[in-house]
Computed example of a mutant assay.
Amino acid sequence: MRRILATFLLACAFGVHAAPAVVQGLVHGTGPEAQRFPWVRTDDAKATDRINQFLFIDTFEAMAPARAGDGLRGIEAQNWQRMPNLGYVVLRNDGRVLSLRVEGEGCGAYCESFTAGHAFDAATGRHLSPGDLFTAEGLADIARKVHANNAARLRKEIAALGSKARSKDEEREDKIALYTECLTSRQDPAYQKIEAMGRMEIDAKGVMFSQGRCSNHAMRALDDLDGFSTRFTPAQLGPSLTPYGRALLLGEGAAPAPASPFDQVLHGSIDGKLPVTLRLEPLRNDGSAAATYFYDRYRKPLSVFGKYRDGVLLLEESSDTRLRLAPDGAGLRGEWISGQKKLPLVLAP
């Protein structure tokens, strides 16, 4: 009896593995050029909302519809003009981790393909960041291996280009110059601090970290390497994982999620009366921070930018409107300030 009770209490404290999520494709347009975007449904309504809100806000700067049946009608036309191609792939969906890749083409002054990897704790809907899954020492070790792998690939390509011909070839020389400059810049400690491991993507075979290509848009035709990626198997990752990471990625044991509000979607209210939703971006190495928030009634995005310093997150919306917040477990607590007016603001997952 005591053993059963202990197991029950552990499950309540740390959560249990959920059933695989149902991922439904919402469609905009018709025919082979129709854009598709994921709508996720889990056994837990709160986790479902956390996942869908994150995906929609991150991709469209728009709140997710209340139901899958509402589709993509609420997405403004300018979003589709900026993203003429959009699709997704489910990479892992095993009840512990839901991982998706959103991919397509984004257009501004010119069009570029893009990919965005998103992984979630399937039971709670928490968006997973490298700091959730890996220890500080593990992150540093992974970063060293990623940068070493990228440098080795560049050196190999430079050597191969150098041995291809003895006669002068302008395009070959331009490629060598491109990759040599890229190698030099990526060995700069400042670059490695900013880029760290790059973009994380989780699938059934392990974790992959990716970084962008060497070339800008104008020089892309010269760049045969495209992006860089380094894959780690579960066995390779084991020593670098936190207890929470081991529970999610390997299914070993149980552990609570980190209590951090960064890189999450939070819900709450201003003055206890005005419901709001906020998507807080990951904290950058220099302490700069950004977020998008919505008054739930109006569902229009408001962008705020600022700094996190000495435990205080100060985000400015305009010259006289700002948010002054402090982490409160996995949420935030503080004030919405406009001129001389100050109202309490409380946010939680």
Rank of each mutant, 00 (worst) to 15 (best):
R153W: 12
T42M: 09
S185T: 05
S318Q: 07
A11H: 02
W336N: 10
P344N: 05
K342G: 04
T30V: 14
A221N: 14
A66C: 03
C111F: 03
G339W: 14
Y191E: 08
L266N: 00
I158E: 10
V22W: 02
E181G: 15
I202T: 13
D174A: 15
I202P: 14
L91S: 06
S318D: 06
A66I: 05
E76Q: 14
D310C: 03
P258I: 10
V90A: 01
R199K: 14
S229M: 10
G31T: 04
V40S: 09
L266Y: 02
L274S: 05
E195M: 14
F232M: 13
G306T: 01
S338D: 14
P327D: 15
G95D: 01
L26R: 07
L280E: 06
P344H: 10
E317W: 01
A221H: 13
R220I: 02
G306R: 00
Y295T: 01
R284T: 09
R199E: 15
N150V: 09
R2D: 07
T48S: 07
E335I: 01
Q187W: 03
L347E: 01
I337P: 01
G339D: 12
G138S: 08
F120R: 11
D132E: 08
Y308W: 08
D286Y: 06
D203A: 12
L314K: 11
H28A: 14
P32T: 07
P32I: 05
G251I: 10
P349V: 07
N285I: 03
R126S: 03
D286Q: 00
P275G: 00
V22A: 15
G212Q: 12
R73C: 12
I337M: 03
P258H: 00
L347G: 09
K145Y: 11
D328M: 04
A136I: 08
G125V: 12
G339K: 11
Y298H: 03
N93L: 05
V146L: 05
A6K: 09
N93D: 07
A255F: 04
E316T: 07
P130R: 00
L283M: 11
D44F: 01
A143S: 13
A235F: 09
C214A: 06
G117P: 15
R166P: 00
L241Q: 03
P189I: 15
G251S: 02
R279E: 08
G117Y: 13
T30R: 15
T233G: 01
V276H: 06
K145Q: 15
L225S: 01
L343W: 06
L55S: 13
A190H: 09
R2F: 10
G253Q: 08
L10E: 04
G25Y: 05
T230R: 10
N85P: 03
H217E: 06
P301S: 06
A165T: 14
L278Q: 05
Y191L: 07
V276L: 04
L222D: 02
